[in-house]
């Protein structure tokens, strides 16, 4: 190979390899100042106004002893309200009360609000989507185990535990209840009055706490969920699922 050829090859290689080289170091840029605030939504489970815990024993409205194994649910299409203005701030959040209170937080535009609107469950547009589109850590991630694979739909609310019809009985509990709501018919939208105006400011975190009166999940003003006969729903018992849905909506209030 002639000297000229070698020179040409070296020059060509240099040019081409240069093109593949790493980018030049760029001086760090100051992050822009935040334009949003943070809304932190906390769910606090309670029993008759006092503390509530999974695996503790309580007497419900029918004087049945109950011991919960799990309460999990979705809140969807969360909107902040003021006057006639409604601003969507979150599409879906998931709460698992296994360890008591649970919280979710996310960025929102600053504003002042007097109420909230949300749905108990998963909005239809999310519920009907292929579940594999949701990445790890997403509320609708399949790894949460909330998906009804036979129905192509999510369980909106899982309400599981044991009960004993004898209110003064002793351990062990032998009969379980497992009421899971789901399917689009169970999605229930509701409003919450924040009591006073709540402001979300740029760069600040605002906490809104919702109490979940677990004891109230067994009854409403007009009806009672009787575990003796109403203790299981996995998609095929819509009346029970709707009753629990309505009771649960009535159990949520702003702290």
């Amino acid at each position: 190979m002639s000297l000229r050829s070698r020179f040409f090859l070296i020059a060509l290689s240099t040019v081409l390899l240069w093109g593949c080289g790493p980018d030049e170091e760029v001086a760090p840029v100051e992050p822009p100042p935040p334009t949003t605030g943070t809304l932190r939504l906390v769910i606090v489970p309670q029993w008759q106004g006092g503390p509530f815990a999974i695996n503790e024993v309580y007497n419900n409205v029918s004087n049945y002893r109950v011991r919960f194994q799990g309460i999990k649910f979705y809140l969807g299409d969360i909107r902040m309200l003021t006057g006639t203005t409604s601003t969507t701030v979150k599409d879906i959040v998931y709460f698992d009360l296994h360890n008591g209170s649970a919280a979710a937080q996310w960025a929102v535009e600053p504003g002042t609000w007097s109420g909230m609107r949300m749905g108990l469950g998963v909005p239809q547009v999310l519920n009907d989507a292929d579940p594999i589109v949701y990445p790890p850590m997403h509320p609708l991630d399949l790894a949460n185990g909330t998906y009804w694979n036979w129905a192509n739909a999510y369980r909106f609310l899982q309400f599981d535990g044991y009960y004993d019809l004898d209110g003064s009985g002793t351990e062990p509990f032998t009969t379980g209840f497992s009421i899971h709501t789901g399917l689009n018919a169970c999605y229930r939208e509701f409003d919450l009055d924040l009591g006073s105006e709540v402001s979300i400011s740029t760069g600040q975190t605002t906490t809104i706490t919702l109490n979940l009166a677990v004891d109230r999940m067994f009854y409403s003003a007009t009806d009672t969920l009787d575990l003796a006969t109403e203790n299981e729903s996995h998609g095929g018992n819509l009346p029970l699922a709707l009753k629990l849905t309505d009771n649960t909506v009535g159990s949520l209030s702003v702290q």
């Binding site: 579940p131 399949l142 790894a143 185990g145 694979n149 036979w150 192509n152």
Partner: peptide
Amino acid sequence: GIPSLEFQVNAPISDPLEMDHNLR
């Protein structure tokens, strides 16, 4: 209850009585 074969694949893989896994 399942609208497509693509969706159906998830069912046996994740069913605790069948393959008891998750897709990921």
